[in-house]
């Protein structure tokens, strides 16, 4: 009997998850026409890039620098055993551009800006601001949701590039200033090993996908939230959890594709 209970509980969860995915997809379909309309009023998008992107910039700069410095220390510790410390720059650059830049930026964005987006839209719903707009004959999807979606989608790739660049600079400072590596070797090894097409562009594609997914989840959860304070707080948590899982899952899939040269 207990097994039946566990299996049926699992089944219910799967069905609920698939239903939720369907809701999110239908929401995206309803949002699609609004995306075009929002682009024609780009000033609204710019405002939202300011709210989300620029405010996430500080945490991205600080985290990027620290991650780069940690990579340099840890990488040096391993490479020096094989007398290959000249490849430190390459190791750091590949780790950041291919993986850590896009993934960590997306995770930070989901926690800092994605949750805020959900809470903001959820609260606008809870305080009848969205209903009020509807009654003023203003469709909230293009007016409120679409600019926020665009802003997130545009901001994440930019932030990811900044994260990687700052991380490499941080690693350079540690490698040359602290570990005594030669700066020229650091850069030249990096340049000979990092491919713009496979590594830099691959990382950029990843961050574009992450930006889309995180923004989508954030605005969906906000718009779909129960219009109560409890509903909004639950939606905020769901945004962070689902975004993080989606980022890591998609990263695995995309990495597998990219390594096989597709």
């Amino acid at each position: 009997m207990r097994i039946v209970g566990i299996v049926s509980g699992l089944g219910r969860r799967v069905i609920a998850g698939v239903t939720r995915l369907g809701r999110a997809a239908l929401f995206l379909g309803r949002l699609a026409p609004g995306l075009g309309i929002a682009l024609m009023r780009f000033r609204l998008v710019i405002q939202q890039i300011y709210m989300t992107g620029v405010l996430t910039l500080v945490i991205v700069l600080v985290s990027g620098a620290f991650v780069g410095m940690i990579l340099a220390l840890q990488g040096y510790n391993t490479l020096v055993r094989y007398d290959a410390q000249s490849s430190l720059g390459l190791l750091v650059a590949l780790s950041l551009t291919r993986e850590l830049g896009p993934v960590l930026t997306a995770l930070l964005f989901a926690g800092r800006a994605g949750s805020a987006l959900t809470a903001e839209i959820g609260l606008m719903k809870a305080t009848e601001q969205l209903d009020g707009m509807e009654m003023m004959a203003v469709d909230p999807l293009p007016r409120v949701v679409a600019p926020r979606f665009w802003a997130g989608w545009i901001a994440v790739p930019l932030l990811a590039m900044i994260f990687s660049a700052v991380g490499i600079i941080g690693a350079y400072i540690v490698a040359v200033g602290d570990l005594g590596l030669d700066g020229g070797v650091f850069w030249s090894q990096m340049q000979s090993g990092v491919s713009v097409r496979d590594d830099v562009l691959g990382g950029l594609i990843k961050s574009v996908v992450f930006g889309f997914v995180v923004s989508w989840i954030a605005v969906f959860e906000g718009y779909d939230a129960k219009p109560t304070s409890e509903g909004v707080s639950r939606a905020t948590t769901r945004t962070v959890v689902s975004s993080s899982l989606a980022i890591l899952g998609l990263d695995f899939i995309m990495t597998a594709f990219m390594l096989r040269g597709l």
Partner: peptide, 10 residues
């Protein structure tokens, strides 16, 4: 329409 919560854009 005037909402009970006023529904002003915050």
């Amino acid at each position: 329409m005037l909402f009970q919560s006023s529904a002003l854009l915050t």
